[in-house]
Write a protein that binds this DNA or RNA. Structure first.
Lengths: 199, 199, 199, 199
DNA sequence: TATGAATGAGCATTCATTCAT
DNA sequence: AATGAATGAATGCTCATTCAT
């Protein structure tokens, strides 16, 4: 009698089993052979659950993204002002060693997107964009509602995300100090968007 | 006596001769054999003038960067207001087919920086950063001097560059409409930094 | 279930299939492409069974060494006196065309050991040394037991091997006549070590 | 008015100027460019004085050989008995750091001889052989004359040289302890060839 | 006599993916 | 459902030597 396996469940199990490997070795140095071994299955079996290597990496990165979103929402709640929330959100990837490894993986993923960019990857990136836009939107709306920042701030969602993307890239490419850049930007920005002053 | 060649000159000549190749094929698909052929020299000769393939790509990208800087300064002069200048500067890479190919190369270069990032590459990126910071600084200072924008705008240089980087990346990664994003950001931003209104 | 292959067996089969190639072309001129072709497999498959090219050469040389040892023991048995045995053993590599090709390969291997000498190669050479020391030891012991040679001869094992190595090298380097040198040495030596005379 | 240069003199000057380089880098890693630079001349000029790279290496090795011979003779004189002289002669290459570097070079040279062996190299090796045979011959003759060793020892010249060659090779190939091997061999040998005992 | 610019052949190795069993 | 054996494309780099000046 064959064991009935929930495909979706096994997918995640395989992905989980080698997520550490991915963080350690990076995408390029992760081989299908390693994946199969760490999951305790044959190489061919991997392809029963995933289309290709990219598919596996996707699964893992998606898991990380969900976790990241969860942490982001959690952290943001603990902050009082809109500025603090933004600071936390934009800076979340640069916190500690744990994040540094995830950041590295994310940068590697971005690099692949930059040169190979399959429709699937674009779709995934757009999905992330939406989620984060939503989070940023909530932060700003709340800030406006609480009278912390002006109505015009509403138009900054996309810019804040693009700024964030720039920080992620440049923290590697030019070695800028991410958290300092974020702080400085928010200081300047809040000088402009906070309520109650005349320029 | 032997023939004396101006090494620096020939370097540039070789780089020039295969820059088209680089734009067409991308970095990864550019082979030393192609470079040598397009320059009409032997493969070994290439290595008389360049350390390695990376070195060649660098030379070409540097040439493009210089050209880009020149065009940026030229375009900016033709604009009247600070907002227009910023729009031109940030949008310069997304103008037409000509730029699209250069943009692609730049994105590929960024991708490499994101995963391999040699000290030399970081140094180059920092150099670019400085140059562009200078240009942005001039634009903002002039805008402040002319009373177009508030003093606080001065603190936006780094943020504008990171935003620009984000647009370069996301125009590929998520397929956002670069020029529209830039326009929208500047509209919102100028709503905040222009002089003469109460929030 | 997938096909299970006896790895060790296939290793030897691949090695065997290109040993002729190795004898003909030498180590440096043996390419992986040739190996794959002669074994009727793909280049990649070669690497399923061998770490690298060196590993393949090792396998083949080891096979030759085993065969050499077998022949040596066989030949020695057919000889009556210790002197004859030594002569056969030391001269075995210089017999005929068959041996000349193997000798050439061995010399090439020695050359590599002399400049690159990986631990693995040293280990292999020590293994050979042990085996041959054992054979020489047996010959001498029997000679002593039979009263052909004096007790002190026992101390000559290592020297005989080093002499043999010297002959292998010099037969190529200075073109000395190997068999004549061996004969002359043994004549002199036996003059000294044979029993029953006063110097 | 052209400067008259003694070709032979300049040859030696060039060779001398890069002999240190040769000891440090080995034959394979010594480039013509380095040679030219260290001699303060152009690459092309090197070929005015030498046929090819091999020719240069030859010149240097010849210089070393002459020096080695000088040292050998000097050392030997300081020894009293034939056994001591042989020990000094055979062990001379394994004395100290100075010798270790020369030994390495010599081994590399042997390796080349083993696979490429040009007539010129064979000739050189034969020349060395003759010289050293002469030295060994003198040692043995003197020993015989002084009644230290028996007449038959005269036949050991070639064997001693081949043994020596074997030690040079195996000190690298199998990592044997050269000086110990030499001592052990000579102990055993002198047990056999010394005068005044009955086996 | 001196130079130095130009040359170009040659090859190991990796690993995602397939598919016969 | 699971497997794992087989595959093969694709490329940077070195350096001794030559010969035009």
């Amino acid at each position: 009698m064959a064991i009935i396996v929930n495909k979706e469940e096994k997918r995640r199990a395989i992905a989980q089993s080698c997520s550490e490997l991915l963080l350690e070795n990076g995408i390029d140095n992760l081989t299908i052979a390693q994946i199969a071994q760490s999951a305790g299955i044959g190489k061919g079996t991997v392809y029963e659950y995933f289309e290709n290597k990219e598919d596996i990496v996707f699964e893992i990165i998606t898991l990380f993204m969900i976790e990241f979103e969860r942490r982001a929402l959690e952290q943001i709640q603990s902050a009082a002002s809109a500025k603090e929330k933004l600071q936390l959100f934009l800076g979340l990837m640069f916190e500690d060693e744990f994040d540094r490894r995830h950041l590295g993986l994310y940068q590697e993923y971005l690099a692949i997107s930059l040169v190979q960019g399959t429709p699937q990857m674009v779709e995934f990136s757009l999905l992330c964009r939406e989620k984060f836009a939503h989070i940023l939107g909530d932060i700003l709306e709340l800030g406006i509602a609480k009278g912390e920042i002006c109505e015009a701030s509403r138009g900054l969602i996309s810019a804040l995300m693009l700024f964030g993307r720039g920080v992620v890239v440049d923290s590697k490419v030019t070695g800028i100090e991410a958290k300092a850049e974020i702080a400085q930007f928010l200081d300047t920005l809040f000088e402009l968007i906070k309520i109650g002053e005349v320029k």
